[in-house]
Amino acid sequence: MDNLKADLRRKKQIFAQDGADVSMLRIFMADGTSANVLYRCMRWCANHQLGLLAYFFQWTNKFLNACVIGSGADFAPGFVIMHPMGIVINSKVVGGYNITLESGVVIGDEKGQSPILANNIFVGAGAKIIGGLTVADDVKIGANAVLTKNADKGTTMLGIPAEAYVKKNDGAAS
């Protein structure tokens, strides 16, 4: 329950950063919150050897939110799903604190290896993170980017395949 509370507080912070000072009731009713609640219920059941009940929550999330998160996927507090439609996360994914996902994000396995996400990560709509890679702290992954290699601390990853966004001295991006 503490993880869910931290998730909701983090979502409230995100709304506040965007200029919307909303109540916790509004956060609870926001798009994606039901996916967060069902994920946390599933993880609690999986951690307490209640596999059938965990599967029920996973199945409910799939049909209610079009969001598939494997029961072994483990995210620290501050995990926020902004828009759940099309999110798919492999069971072996491990995520740190304050990870925010937009719609259509896929975090998947390749050849038995799944990504490890550190802390304070934003993943834009439609982005894909595939394979046994590490995403370091404070990384932003742009919409529709396909990340297949490690992302260094503080970078913004864009494109297919995703590369670090580098700002040139003249202000132009490359």
Results as ranks from 00 to 15, higher is better:
1 M>W: 04
1 M>C: 03
2 D>E: 15
3 N>D: 10
4 L>T: 13
4 L>I: 10
8 L>Y: 11
10 R>S: 14
12 K>H: 00
14 I>S: 00
16 A>T: 12
17 Q>M: 13
19 G>T: 09
21 D>T: 06
23 S>N: 02
24 M>L: 14
24 M>W: 09
25 L>V: 09
28 F>H: 11
29 M>N: 11
30 A>V: 06
30 A>Q: 07
31 D>N: 14
32 G>Q: 08
32 G>A: 09
33 T>S: 14
35 A>K: 04
36 N>M: 15
36 N>D: 07
37 V>N: 03
39 Y>I: 03
40 R>C: 04
45 C>P: 06
46 A>S: 14
46 A>T: 11
48 H>V: 08
52 L>P: 00
52 L>I: 15
52 L>A: 13
53 L>E: 07
53 L>H: 04
56 F>S: 10
57 F>T: 12
58 Q>S: 12
61 N>H: 01
65 N>E: 09
67 C>K: 09
70 G>Q: 11
71 S>Q: 14
73 A>K: 04
76 A>M: 11
78 G>K: 06
81 I>E: 03
81 I>Q: 05
82 M>V: 09
82 M>N: 12
83 H>G: 11
83 H>N: 12
88 V>M: 07
88 V>I: 13
89 I>N: 05
90 N>P: 09
90 N>E: 11
91 S>N: 09
93 V>L: 06
93 V>R: 08
94 V>S: 08
94 V>E: 04
95 G>C: 02
95 G>R: 03
95 G>H: 01
96 G>Y: 01
102 E>F: 15
103 S>K: 09
104 G>F: 03
104 G>Q: 12
106 V>G: 10
107 I>N: 05
108 G>I: 08
110 E>D: 07
112 G>I: 03
113 Q>S: 05
114 S>G: 00
114 S>F: 00
115 P>T: 01
115 P>V: 01
116 I>Y: 01
116 I>C: 02
118 A>S: 13
118 A>M: 08
119 N>T: 06
125 A>I: 12
125 A>S: 15
129 I>G: 01
131 G>Y: 07
133 L>Y: 05
134 T>D: 05
136 A>Q: 04
138 D>N: 15
140 K>Y: 07
146 V>S: 01
147 L>C: 07
147 L>W: 04
149 K>C: 11
150 N>D: 15
150 N>A: 13
152 D>R: 11
153 K>V: 14
159 G>Q: 03
159 G>S: 09
160 I>D: 00
160 I>V: 14
160 I>F: 03
161 P>R: 08
161 P>M: 12
161 P>H: 07
164 A>D: 08
167 K>Y: 02
169 N>I: 10
171 G>H: 11
173 A>C: 08
173 A>S: 12
